[in-house]
């Protein structure tokens, strides 16, 4: 029967000082450290022996398609799911022994919003803060601060049911910040949002990143990973396929540029062979055949495209672009991120 002493002593703005005065980190200085982490559900090995570590102030990403094991890994870090095997240390504690103590210092944004629909926006923040044992004297001003952060001032008294998807998402993030967490965990933060709502959300997350909040983000959107993550791991079928910064991953696993060519259905395969055979590709260039288009990985996109056209091939559409994490994923797994 233990109360969280850091929170019980915290009043008003003093919570930051109270939280920060305790050095909560692993022996190696990281905030999260996983070694050979495994989670099985019956026969399914959802997470199959992964290693990663997250440092203070870092924005760390888990990129992969649906079913890659990202959310399962995230739930273990959130200390709401017990690992089947391997080692996991969060803020210097073992989650299977000290779940509530770890969760006191985490902010969790789940994949599906689980806001309290029966109560108002403001009440959601205060009630959730009470779950952490935070005093009303701290929560009342904190709720106002977070309402502004979530840009929900006009909706503060409304029931959550009446909010749009983007607003709900922002409130979920604001709610996760109520205990001033050391680590903010975001599981697919922008899935299901329209492009405008996504950009508003990214802006909020950027501000947190600038403020030095440690972020862990799972996503299957490569643009989200590129924009928000300092470092990321690419996951597929429970395994980590690669790790690095977005730029280094692209450098290591893809070419500088990509030419996308569409020749119409049924013609892509044959044309790919023809392009390779005609010697139109430079040193290290390669062609990837997708159902709807060809991807030519090359150092000089424009020059390669010019050679293809000069050889007599007539693509219906063509596009030269920089390589992205999508290409990295395709290279590593032979599949697309979003299917």
């Amino acid at each position: 029967m233990k109360r969280d002493s850091t929170h019980r002593n915290a009043t008003g703005g003093g919570i930051s000082a109270a939280l920060k005065s305790v050095a909560l980190e692993n022996a190696d200085g990281s905030l999260i450290s996983a070694r050979g982490l495994v989670k099985t559900f019956g026969q399914l090995r959802a997470v199959d022996g992964i290693d990663f570590s997250v440092g203070k102030g870092e924005a760390f990403g888990l990129l992969g398609p649906n079913g890659a094991g990202k959310s399962t890994a995230m739930r273990m870090v959130a200390s709401v799911s017990k690992r089947t095997g391997g080692e996991l240390s969060i803020l210097g504690m073992d989650p299977s022994l000290r779940g509530p103590d770890i969760r006191a210092h985490l902010g969790v944004v789940p994949q599906e919003d689980n806001l309290d629909l029966e109560i108002s926006v403001r009440e959601n923040l205060v009630v959730y803060g009470r779950y952490f044992g935070l005093p009303f004297s701290y929560l009342r001003p904190k709720a106002e601060e977070l309402i502004d952060f979530a840009q929900l001032r006009e909706k503060a008294r409304e029931k959550v049911d009446n909010l749009s998807g983007g607003m709900k998402r922002r409130l979920t993030i604001a709610r996760a910040l109520v205990n001033e967490p050391d680590i903010l965990l975001l599981d697919e933060p922008t899935t299901g949002l329209d492009p405008q709502a996504r950009h508003v959300l990214w802006d909020r997350l950027f501000r947190l990143k600038e403020a030095g909040v440690t972020l862990v983000i799972t996503t299957h959107y490569m643009d989200e990973a590129e924009q928000l993550c300092d470092r990321l791991v690419v996951m597929d079928r429970g395994h980590i396929m690669a790790e690095g910064t977005p730029a280094s991953l692209i450098r290591e696993h893809s070419s500088r540029e990509v030419v996308e060519l569409r020749f119409g259905s049924g013609r892509n395969e044959g044309t790919a062979a023809a392009i390779s055979a005609a010697g139109l590709l430079g040193e290290g260039d390669r062609v990837e055949v997708l159902p709807d288009r060809l991807l030519v990985y090359t150092q000089e996109g424009e020059a390669t495209l010019a050679r293809v056209v000069a050889s007599g091939q007539r693509p219906i559409t063509s596009l030269v672009r920089r390589s992205s994490l999508e290409d990295v994923f395709l290279r590593l797994t032979g599949r697309s991120l979003v299917e």
């Binding site: 029967m1 233990k2 109360r3 969280d4 022994l97 000290r98 779940g99 509530p100 309290d116 029966e118 109560i119 009440e123 205060v126 009630v127 009470r130 779950y131 044992g133 029931k159």
Partner: peptide, 24 residues
């Protein structure tokens, strides 16, 4: 008990009272 009890059932009770005013 550690891990299942944090000494805070009143926080859960508080939530029910807040939600009570929208009840039927």
């Amino acid at each position: 008990m550690r891990g299942v009890y944090a000494g805070r059932p009143h926080a859960v009770l508080h939530r029910s009272f807040v939600a009570l005013k929208t009840s039927n």
